[in-house]
Design a protein around this nucleic acid. Structure first.
Lengths: 229, 229
DNA sequence: CCAAAAGTGTTCTCCATACACCCATGC
DNA sequence: GCATGGGTGTATGGAGAACACTTTTGG
């Protein structure tokens, strides 16, 4: 690394923070840690931490997530930077926020590093968060809502095999409103994203539903609508 | 500002860079500066520079833009951060990129500060840019394309009074494909975003076109389509 | 009168929406 | 047999896309 052209003014610190969503029977959850260190010790926060000098932002986000919670999301994408001057009591700290999706069942949480505890928290239950993390979470939630119409995000949240009802519930949860069952099934099946299996769910006290699986990688959005421009 | 909790590891430097678009008769232009200082002295680049400790990211972007080019866009929004490890030969520098829109006619450029020169450059003419600015510009261009369908961005690019043809050209330029004249006019007028004026363009060698102006109220999208979710 | 752009409606197709009943299963 | 959710088709309306000719003006 060359340093021919030096810049020796005071520098802001740089962190990453991750809003990782998962889905279970109770609804949409977000991954939170309980901070172990000051400031905001004991307070819940998005997992994240300082960016090292020799790692990209994306790598830093994955590393911090892994260190603090053990979670390694398949999907993790940058949201944007948050840089209000006084967002961190330690001084000037700019953070680059990420949002991610995981199959919740695949991940056992293990809190470590700066995290005293790690939990999946229902997104619709407000909770006081450290720093400006409530704002970041809000922006992430909003991004998820709009992205779900354009990107096949459902495959990142659902287990391998799932019922159409489950898929519909996902969309309803993320979008925040109900969808018509027949229209939803017609639409989703017409997109050719799903493979119909000769398997049915089990352990239910009623007629068992057919299971589906996402077809191998294709372009195309899996959503109730796919607007073009 | 309290510094109770110190963090004394090496820190990345933090910059902002702006991809500002303008429109004239020749098409869509992007605002570039010719760098005066190393690295990349003499090379064209997006205007930008270091973030000060006591200013927000947004403020830094506007300040650098003003300092280097004299341009003060009404619309300037964050794109995302770019943080590849070796994107800057000086060492670790993370940049937060912005994209903006200006009414090109309103702005006389004046290069200053770190900029030897400042110019409006046609976006479709490739040019070797400093750092990873070509990538940033590409992402900004892409964002503009998708944003134009959802946000009334045209009012930021056009002069106060304009013809429907001019507006249509704008959409065609930004979207990169032609639109049907009758359908476009029908659609755009049905959105109630424009006020019909009793004025006509002048100085043309054919029938003069009626002028329009954007109505005051905000909130609607001005685009060929307005998909919902 | 010619060139150049302004201005104007209709038809068709597609897709989202709304809506109700029978079926299979476990208890 | 009954409660629970699974699974299915049709009718309607709105919006985008495609399409050609007449009008106006300056030169």
């Amino acid at each position: 690394m060359t340093h021919q052209y030096t810049y020796d003014y005071p520098r802001a610190a740089l962190t990453v923070d991750c809003a990782v969503f998962g889905l279970d029977d109770e609804g949409l959850k977000v991954l939170l840690i309980q901070r172990d260190a000051e400031p905001f010790a004991g307070c819940w926060a998005l997992p994240g931490g300082y960016v090292e000098m020799d790692e990209s932002l994306d790598a830093a986000a994955r590393r911090e997530l892994e260190e603090e919670t053990g979670v390694r999301p398949r999907f993790l994408e940058q949201l944007r930077a948050f840089g209000a001057v006084h967002r961190d009591p330690r001084g000037r700290v700019v953070t680059v926020a990420y949002y991610g999706l995981v199959r919740l069942a695949d991940h056992r949480l293990r809190a470590a590093s700066d995290a005293r505890d790690a939990r999946w928290h229902p997104v619709d239950q407000p909770l006081r968060l450290a720093f400006d993390h409530a704002e970041i979470l809000g922006v992430a939630r909003e991004r998820l809502r709009s992205a779900v119409c354009y990107q096949p995000l459902a495959r990142e949240l659902l287990p391998d095999k799932f019922t159409l009802r489950r898929l519909q519930q996902l969309y309803e949860t993320v979008l925040g409103h109900t969808l018509d069952k027949r229209s939803f099934r017609k639409k989703i099946l017409s997109l050719d994203l799903l493979t119909e299996l000769d398997q049915w769910e089990s352990g239910v006290a009623h007629r068992a539903a057919r299971l589906y699986r996402f077809t191998r990688r294709r372009g195309g959005a899996a959503g109730p609508r796919r607007p073009r421009c």
